[in-house]
Design a protein around this nucleic acid. Structure first.
Length: 219
DNA sequence: CTGTGGATTTGCT
DNA sequence: GCAAATCCACAGG
């Protein structure tokens, strides 16, 4: 058997359906908590459970979301957001980092969910290597933060922007392994300077991998 | 534990 | 030209 096929056989659960993402990011983001993001690499699977996410609304919404990259309409950078739901939107930020989003809404309308934190499920050693940390580093240090999780999984704009996350042949997938999310907490979004009070950040209550300082994490 | 500042690419005005 | 959905090192309490 081909190695990649063997690797795919080890993927947890099953792919999500397209319709899951063909809805408002405000609805998708909380539903995404507990689902699994998996990167199939030559060295094995790097996978984590989504424990924190933020919604960014498209310009068709009323009122429009000034914090969203799609706010001023389509550009070469954000074109994925205006395409089909369930695709990866990866962009670079502050010169050194990347952030990963999943496109939502029906074709032609923008909207996305920013992945802000994962809990490592598979390939923790590889994640530590990607992050420049010792083997056995705490999950919180590996994947807690939007750019940390991209570093840990080895995600870049060049290699992953625009990938279909709902295709069994894709190296990057979002899957449902049956995990039932518990209590979900809602707060304003982090790191933005407009619409700072919109309650569109969602996290799994009590999960140690949710981002933020310890004193601010419990809400 | 908290606060501050630097790194450094990319896309749009 | 400049702002950006961030992270990390380091200083001080």
């Amino acid at each position: 058997m081909e190695e990649s096929a063997q690797v795919r056989g080890k993927l947890p659960g099953r792919l999500l359906k397209r319709a899951f993402f063909e809805a408002s990011p405000e609805l998708v983001a909380p539903l995404l908590l507990g689902k699994v993001l998996a990167h199939i690499t030559a060295r094995g699977i790097l996978a984590g459970r989504i424990v924190e996410a933020e919604a960014y609304l498209g310009p068709h919404c009323q009122p429009p979301d000034p914090a969203a990259h799609s706010y001023r309409g389509p550009t070469p950078r954000n074109s994925v957001l205006f395409g089909r739901a369930g695709h990866a939107y990866v962009y670079s930020i502050y010169g050194r980092y990347f952030c990963m989003n999943i496109s939502c809404e029906v074709d032609g309308r923008a909207g996305c969910v920013l992945l802000r934190a994962l809990e490592p499920l598979a390939g923790a050693d590889g994640m530590a290597r990607n992050r420049g940390l010792e083997k056995g580093a705490a999950g919180r240090l590996l994947t807690s933060g939007p750019s940390r999780l991209c570093m840990a999984l080895g995600l870049t704009r060049a290699a992953h922007n625009g990938l279909d996350l709902l295709d069994a042949d894709s190296p990057l997938q979002v899957r449902d392994d049956g995990y039932a999310a518990g209590e979900i907490l809602v707060t304003p979004r982090i790191g933005i300077h407009v619409a700072v009070d919109w309650p569109m950040r969602f996290g799994l209550a009590g999960n140690g991998c949710v981002s933020g300082r310890k004193s601010l994490r419990g809400w």
